[in-house]
Simulated scan of single mutants.
Amino acid sequence: MRTTASRRVLTAVALAASSAAVLTACGSGSSSSLPPAAGASSTGSGSGASFQQVIDDAPVAAASDIPAGSPMAAIKARGDLVEGGTDTSALFSLTDPVSGRTTGFDAGLAAMLAKYITGQPKVKLVQVQVATREALLQNGTVDAVFATYTITPKRATKVAFAGPYYTSGDAILVKKSDSSITKVADLNGRTVCTESSSTAAADIKKYAPSAKLVLFDQNSQCVSAVEQGRADAYVLDQALLLGDAYREPTKVKVVGQPFTTEPYGIGLPLNSPAMKTFVDAWLKKIEADGEWAKLWQATIGTTLGGSAPTPPVVGSAAGS
Score class of each variant (00 low, 15 high):
S196Y: 12
S196W: 09
S197F: 13
S197G: 15
S197D: 15
S198D: 08
S198Q: 12
S198W: 10
T199S: 10
A201Y: 07
A201P: 04
A202L: 08
A202S: 12
D203T: 15
I204W: 08
K205I: 14
K206Y: 10
Y207R: 11
A208M: 10
P209C: 02
P209G: 01
S210T: 13
S210G: 06
S210K: 09
A211V: 09
A211Q: 07
K212F: 12
L213I: 06
L213A: 04
L215W: 10
L215D: 11
L215K: 10
D217G: 14
Q218N: 09
Q218F: 07
Q218C: 06
N219F: 09
N219Q: 10
N219Y: 05
N219I: 07
N219H: 07
S220Q: 14
S220C: 12
S220V: 14
Q221V: 09
Q221K: 07
C222V: 02
S224E: 12
A225F: 00
V226R: 06
V226H: 04
E227R: 13
Q228D: 06
Q228F: 01
G229Y: 03
G229I: 10
R230C: 00
R230N: 03
R230D: 00
A231S: 01
D232G: 03
D232W: 02
D232P: 02
A233Y: 04
A233T: 09
A233W: 06
V235M: 04
V235G: 02
V235Q: 04
L236S: 11
D237W: 05
D237V: 07
D237Y: 04
Q238K: 15
Q238H: 15
A239F: 13
A239I: 04
A239P: 06
L242Y: 12
L242A: 09
G243D: 11
D244S: 08
D244Y: 05
D244G: 10
A245I: 07
A245Q: 08
Y246F: 15
Y246N: 15
Y246W: 15
R247A: 06
R247C: 04
R247K: 13
R247G: 03
R247F: 01
E248P: 03
E248R: 12
E248G: 06
P249Q: 07
K251S: 05
K251E: 06
V252K: 00
K253L: 05
K253V: 05
K253T: 06
